[in-house]
Design a protein around this nucleic acid. Sequence first.
RNA 1: GGAGAGGUGGCAGAGUGGCCUAUUGCAUCACCUUGCUAAGGUGAAGUACCGGCAACGGUACCGGGGGUUCGAAUCCCCCCCUCUCCGCCA
Length: 429
Amino acid sequence: MLDIKVLRENPDAARAGAIKKRLPDRAQAVDRALAIDAELRALTPKLDGMRGEQKNASKALGKLSAAEREPFLQKQKELKAEIGVLEEREKQLEADLKQQLSLVPNIPDEDVPEGKDDTENQETKRWGSVRDFGFTPKGHDEIAEAQGWLDTKRASDMAGSRNYFLFGDLALLHDAVLRFAVDLLVGRGFTAVDPPLLVRDAAMFGTGFFPGGEEQTYRAEKDELNLIGTAEVPVTSLHSGEMLAEDQLPKKYVARSMCFRREAGTYGKDQRGLYRVHQFQKVEQVIVDIADKARSIAHHHDIVKNAEDLLQACELPYRIVAVCGGDLGVPQAMKYDIETWMPSRGNYCETHSASRFYDYQARRLSLRYRPKDGGKVLFCHTLNNTVIASPRVLIPLLENHQQKDGTVRLPQVLRPYLGGREVLGRPIW
RNA sequence: GGAGAGGUGGCAGAGUGGCCUAUUGCAUCACCUUGCUAAGGUGAAGUACCGGCAACGGUACCGGGGGUUCGAAUCCCCCCCUCUCCGCCA
């Protein structure tokens, strides 16, 4: 959520931001919010005056005897009725304002490239070289099925498409890479978190997934809870409603959790293998810090670096793209995606997503801190990035490190998690 | 699932219809005192919105929402959360 003051002072920036994100209907929310705000600003002083009058009269009444009160009571009742009508209007306007304001997207930063969708994201870095196999490489699903590591057929029969069973060494590799990611971040001062997976609407709203993301979310209607699509939701909401002290900041968390996504509207897309599935595990890094743009940007680079270091340790070629306006989500101010080379897809594909929000989420969550210098209470800045998401990362791991005979070479850093083994699987081909 | 007790400012904790403009303590900030330390004294200070260049003034806020009343932290209803006991259970 943006500050209504920002909208008053610079509505053009908010409108232009929505346009840059290719969300023209959200740009209209700026004007609707301002219209409601104007009416509210006319109403509030009037109501305040009336309430003051009522309050003073009540106080005077309290000092009178029952008989003396009588003549004044009628007037008080009339005033009360008048106030009641206006208060109802005020309440309606406040609710409408919050609704419209929550539809206004965060303003994309200057370093967000113009563009309509993910085809116009801008590459900023490339690391590693695409391997020359010397044989025809197989897809991850082919390798995994041949090794007896993967069954999507039975999973789909039982649970619907985009589900999977992992078995044996692939199930262990899945756990190993997640565990490695947690250990890497804990070693860099992040606090490990195991968060709730079912959350109330307030957490979904606060992190900016609602309104808008309802179709993407599994909902437990009976309990009015939502299955999280990312640990960003519970972890960023962790200090919601709190007033932190500046010396408690920054808060750095690394959460490993299950993630659930309906993937509605993606029929036919990425249907095979482990790329797009309904449930997966993700290790997510979340930072909450003071309201300082330069520090947010520095954190942003740091969390991208953490993910890069993990990919480099796993010997996986990747590139970084600056996500363009049209591909940017509603709450983000700027986002880098990291795309890892997947031989079967012949392309770099998204495995990580690093976002900075400034105070957009914090305002929705009421996540504030008291500055050391005793100044005004401020909203925090928040950021997050994937460290690893699996089984998606198993695609590049299997495909880039496959050998001619169908076995898979393990990167050095993962070996301790798999009993010191250097190779997984048995020769097939 | 059943029964009971609670939720008050950054924290602790008083407050059972008008003297609440929320007592007090801790922590915070400023100044003073005691040769250091420990401690003591005086004062300032909640959050949001509105008006004002400002000092300041007004209104709202006592877990959330609704109600009763001229007037609600206080009484009533619904919801959320915490604690205790019972039941069930990995």
